[in-house]
Simulated scan of single mutants.
Amino acid sequence: MPMNTKPLVICAPEPRSLDLIFTDEKRRLLQERYTLVETTEDKVASLDEEVLAQARYILGQPPISSETLARLNSLRAVINVESNLLDNMPYEEVFARGIHVITTGAVFAVPVAEIGLGFAIDLARCITESDLAFRNGNEKWGGEGNGSARLLTGSDVGIVGFGDLGRALNRLLTGFRCKIKVFDPWLPPSILRDHGVEPASLQDVLTQSDFVFVMAAVTTENRGFLGSEEFAAMRKGAAFILMSRADVVDFDALLEAVGSGHIVAASDVFPLEPLPLDHPARSAPGLLRSAHRAGAMDVAFKQMGDMVLEDMALMDRDLPPMRCKRAERETARRMRSKPVDVN
Rank of each mutant, 00 (worst) to 15 (best):
P2V: 07
P7G: 03
P7R: 00
V9C: 05
R16M: 14
R16D: 10
D19S: 13
I21N: 01
F22L: 09
T23D: 04
E25C: 00
R27L: 01
L29V: 13
L29K: 06
E32I: 06
T35C: 13
T40L: 15
L47H: 02
D48V: 06
L52H: 08
A53G: 11
R56D: 09
E67K: 13
A70T: 09
A70H: 06
L72I: 00
N73H: 11
R76L: 14
I79M: 03
N80D: 07
E82M: 09
S83R: 14
N84V: 01
N84Q: 13
L86N: 08
V94F: 09
A96T: 05
A96V: 03
R97V: 04
I99A: 08
I102P: 12
A106E: 03
V110S: 07
V112Y: 10
V112C: 07
I115C: 04
I121H: 08
L123H: 09
R125P: 09
C126E: 15
C126T: 15
E129K: 09
D131S: 13
A133S: 14
F134I: 10
N136M: 09
G137C: 08
N138T: 14
E139N: 15
E144S: 13
N146P: 02
A149P: 00
T153V: 11
S155Y: 01
F162P: 00
G163T: 07
G163P: 13
R167D: 11
N170I: 08
N170S: 15
L173P: 00
T174S: 13
D184V: 01
P185L: 06
P188V: 10
L192F: 04
L192K: 03
D194S: 14
H195K: 11
H195R: 14
E198Q: 11
P199S: 05
Q203T: 05
Q203A: 06
D204M: 01
D204R: 01
D204P: 11
L206T: 00
F211M: 08
V212W: 00
F213M: 03
F213A: 01
M215F: 12
M215C: 13
A216S: 04
F225E: 02
E230I: 02
E230G: 02
M234D: 04
K236G: 05
K236I: 13
G237K: 04
A238C: 11
R245G: 04
A246M: 03
D247P: 09
V248R: 03
D250C: 00
F251Q: 05
D252P: 00
D252E: 10
D252R: 02
A253W: 07
E256M: 11
V258C: 01
H262R: 12
V264E: 07
A266E: 02
V269M: 04
L272C: 15
L272V: 15
D278V: 10
R282N: 14
P285C: 12
G286W: 07
G286C: 01
L287Y: 07
L288F: 12
R289P: 15
S290G: 14
S290A: 15
A291R: 15
A294F: 02
K302Q: 09
L309M: 08
M312C: 08
M312E: 04
L314S: 04
L314M: 04
R317T: 08
D318I: 07
D318V: 05
A327E: 05
A327S: 13
E328I: 10
R329Y: 10
R329D: 15
A332D: 05
R333K: 14
M335A: 11
R336Q: 03
S337R: 06
P339N: 06
V342C: 08
